[in-house]
Write a protein that binds this DNA or RNA. Structure first.
Lengths: 340, 340
DNA sequence: AGAATTTCCCAAACCGCTTTGAGGACTGAA
DNA sequence: TTCAGTCCTCAAAGCGGTTTGGGAAATTCT
């Protein structure tokens, strides 16, 4: 059932039918109703490809993942994408995933721009002075960044959680409890989110005239194994830290394993704070002792980013969006006063 | 730069240029080369939407996730999709993700069929007598199932790992080691993969005239918390199992936590075998003791499924594919003789 | 009543590509 | 020289929508 058939059925022109269905004012309400009813009765659906060709809009949003596997591996990304995809689906947008392939990420954006494959893209895991935003500005593709760059330029839309504030709060909680040796098991610090976390951590230490010794810090991929290995390493240092600040639940899982193995009681001999992105398969509250966390749902962030991007696509002239989400510090059982 | 401009530039007709670029034989080699060079020089790329409209092929593969969040949460799915997406990208196919929205999964397939949004779909996490394959057969959309149904019908293409065999092997290893009380922490058994695993487990027990007592079994979502809770539960039964068979690494992680908490030495007082899908953030070998696993990369499965689907799309007439992958049992340190 | 609007609808052009059906320019054979 | 057979190229007709530029009928204004 296509437009031509439908309009013949109704003894109307294609124009009128098209306008009736798309809500244009040039058609009488009675006619519109008649068209809508008949369309529903016959189960007419406009062909998406034809519409795209005619309008130049694709009604699709693109996510591109680098061929380098280390990014897509992260379950964080899929939860984020899931949150976004749901919003897109509700708004009648498709979600396009581009992972790897021969082109590099920038080339994919170029192609997207050339053949109008997508109406917008979302940039994930930005790093300091990320070249992607310059390219996208150039290509005039609507986009939004999940996270922020760390440059002086501020010519892009973004949504970010307050990573710096969160880790500052978390660190402060620990220093208030008397901890002076606090380790940080962080994500890759070429990514801004991890960088901001470290800065927050250092800021809170500085308030107490403490400073972080390099051996207490780790920066790397957020795997269980890294969490285990590095927790074990720092906890075996001659002057071992009494608290660990950990950037992901996966790493926390490894760290708990390390503590158990070393026979260190969590919340007593060693305090743990983790960042919880709200992944559904790993619950901070269910741990024993329950885990003190900085908490922010990455899935919700995905949804909100989707909304912002759609708004941006609707009104490209609207001012750039910048949204910073507060992150709650939820104190549970894994933090306690520093042992003496 | 579109086809019309390019052909004008070359003083050729659109037909000839199109044919030259698409490898049709009706054009002289010299002409083809001239066209190709000019196209490359000017950076011409055919408009994807126009091509789709003209050919009726979308060069896209669809994944649809139910609005019910419990499926998409699973990091397994994203790893699978990542593996597939990479293949699609290499073959010039887009990957379409549809998560939630107002339509239910079946309605989305219907829409896909009506407006040719995708050239094929992949069905994940099939359950017994899954209605999706009947619908897809009806709609004539090329598709492939990751996993199998459990019905007598066999009219679909699939790729599956030998879940039954794997868990049978694993259970046999344990009975050979003298274990007689073996618990199974399984995925949701309305899904065939989990059902097959239970059947394999029961078959191996039956070989020794053992049978599984209900309290030793759990079926549910593969979360860390479920692993912890259920491991703890079974290990506190009056007649506690000496070995645990666990369906995912996330659950293993929880189970290890439970063992540590109960002071049970893994590989000595309690043996553990986990199924390892090769997720990059959770390494079985890195555990202490290293974990005995049944191992099969779900990412590789994603890639292979993608290949099979693309073949199917190329030649719809070709016979249905059915590919059963053997699963290796890798014996490491978490299994030992049954304590007496 | 006649002019000026407004309302409603239509034919046709267009989006950019593929593909059909046919024609012109060669070749080689008769 | 003529005719059939290749080889190469083209104009035009789709694909299925949207959008422009009118035009006829109905309404309002003088």
């Amino acid at each position: 059932m296509n437009l031509k058939q439908l309009s013949k059925q109704l003894s109307l022109s294609q124009t009128t039918v098209s306008r009736a269905l798309n809500g244009y004012p040039e058609v009488r309400e009675a006619t519109r109703k008649r068209v809508a009813d008949e369309a529903a009765r016959l189960g007419y659906r406009p062909n998406a490809h034809a519409r795209r060709l005619a309008t130049g809009r694709s009604h699709a949003i693109g996510f591109v993942f680098p061929s380098d596997r280390s990014v897509m591996i992260d379950p964080l990304f899929s939860d984020f994408v899931a949150g976004a995809a749901e919003v897109y689906a509700l708004q009648g947008f498709e979600t396009l995933l581009h992972a790897g392939g021969h082109e590099d990420e920038m080339a994919v954006y170029r192609r997207f721009a050339e053949d109008g494959a997508v109406d917008g893209v979302v940039v994930q895991a930005p790093h300091v002075n990320d070249p992607r935003v310059a390219l996208l500005n150039d290509l005039q593709i609507p986009y939004i960044v999940h996270g922020r760059l760390d440059s002086s330029e501020n010519d892009y839309s973004w949504l970010d959680i307050d990573n710096g504030g969160a880790f500052q709060k978390a660190t402060k909680l620990l220093t208030d409890l008397g901890h002076t040796r606090i380790a940080l098991l962080n994500g890759p610090e070429n990514l801004t989110y991890a960088l901001h976390r470290r800065k927050g951590y250092e800021a809170a230490l500085a308030e107490r005239n403490l400073h972080a010794a390099t051996p207490y810090m780790f920066s790397g991929v957020l795997t269980e194994e890294n969490g285990y290995r590095e927790a074990k390493r720092v906890l075996q240092l001659p002057n071992r830290p009494t608290a660990l600040l950990i950037s992901s639940m996966m790493m926390v899982s490894g760290a708990i394993r390390a503590c158990n193995e070393l026979g260190l009681a969590i919340g007593k001999q060693v305090s743990l704070i983790g960042h919880d992105d709200g992944l559904p398969f790993m619950n901070a509250e269910g741990l024993v002792p329950s885990l003190t966390t900085t908490t922010s749902s990455i899935r919700d962030a995905g949804s909100r980013v989707a909304e912002l991007l759609l708004e941006r696509i609707e009104c490209p002239a609207s001012p750039l969006a910048g949204e910073l989400w507060n992150v709650d510090l939820i104190v549970r059982g894994s933090t306690g006063p520093a042992p003496r």
